[in-house]
Design a binder for these strands. Structure first.
Lengths: 184, 184
DNA sequence: TTGACATATAGGATCTGTCCTATACAGTCA
DNA sequence: TGACTGTATAGGACAGATCCTATATGTCAA
């Protein structure tokens, strides 16, 4: 479970409510770590039970009370332990590749369509991530970024790089498919 | 649940036992769709209940009976429906990026180490996949491949492409980190 | 004024998948 | 002889995540 550590990581930057956390995550790590709202709250409860974080209840009249979560020393220790721990490589599930593996059975046209759609999605993703990166770079000049900011920005670059790789791979493949004629 | 469809896809090629299936999958789609043995058997039972596949029990003396699973018309229909269905893009979880996002807090050296290890893993993956591709290409000349074989080979190429992209991205990032001096 | 959106939390059901274990025997290698 | 690998299946416990729902109210725009 890495959501646990993601949360510790965010709370190490500043104390937050579950709501804040959700927003922050969807703005920064959502493209490689989508987080379910219910899961965030559940994990916060769990972390509190494990005494890795603590909660300060801030009374509010008009809304449910704000529960401000703050990381404890034990939590920081656990976070740092996790960061230094060896990371086992595990392949992730790619529904698209699974489909590509079998899509030949419904014909060349459908296969081409699948590839085209995928390329369009990758292009859109690259654009969205590129826009975010552009915005950040415009706001803060690269030379002023600290190590942490640089690495965070790098996760964006990673997404862009892979999106571009996907597009190139699709272009090659489509070219290859076009150049040949198969018996339908 | 795509394991269901992966299984239908394999059974559409030829009838198999759970054991065969497991072997086939680990030889072909494991790098983008790892499958747990227990899960395969459970899914086979489920597919049988749903009348998408049928089972023929082949008696064996020395071993548990072989349960040969065969796809039914309904199963092929479902498979083709799934293949043609629009594929929603969903980001997959990347534990490595999550770690990179936070690793700055334990220092430059540890961050570099994480990147180095990742690059080594990507290089190894590229090599393994490349070897498999090389072997296939040596056995069957490209010109003789049908559409389905070409697409299957393309899933390998996809893995290689992304591994290479990962390596390039890491090289860039490490260069960037080296050129700057941060206050530790 | 009606509906959408933001703030804020949380329970229930369910789904997928992982890990561990158990069973059973044949062949092979040291 | 004993340990390991291959063939073959399957149950139990559990983790992690998703989906849906419920609650409550303020603000802002159409």
């Amino acid at each position: 479970m890495s959501l646990k550590h993601a949360i510790l990581g965010f709370l190490a930057v500043s104390p937050m409510s579950g709501y804040d956390l959700r927003k922050r995550m969807s703005e920064s790590v959502a493209h490689f770590w989508p987080a379910d709202q219910a899961q965030i709250y559940r994990t916060l409860s769990q972390l509190t039970e494990e005494k890795l974080i603590e909660v300060e209840v801030i009374e509010q009249d008009s809304r449910p009370n704000r529960r401000l979560h703050r990381i404890l020393q034990t939590g920081e220790t656990e976070l740092d332990r996790w960061l230094a721990e060896p990371l086992a490589y595990q392949p992730d599930r790619e529904p698209f590749l699974l489909r590509l593996f079998f899509v030949g059975r419904i014909g060349l046209d459908q296969s081409m369509r699948l590839l085209k759609e995928r390329a369009a999605e990758a292009a859109e993703l690259a654009e969205v991530l590129g826009a975010i990166r552009g915005q950040i770079e415009a706001e803060v000049p690269m030379e002023h970024l600290g190590l942490e900011q640089t690495l965070r920005l790098a996760t964006l670059a990673n997404g862009i790089k892979h999106a571009e790789a996907e597009i190139e791979w699709i272009d090659d493949l489509r070219q290859q498919l076009k150049e040949r004629k198969w018996p339908t």
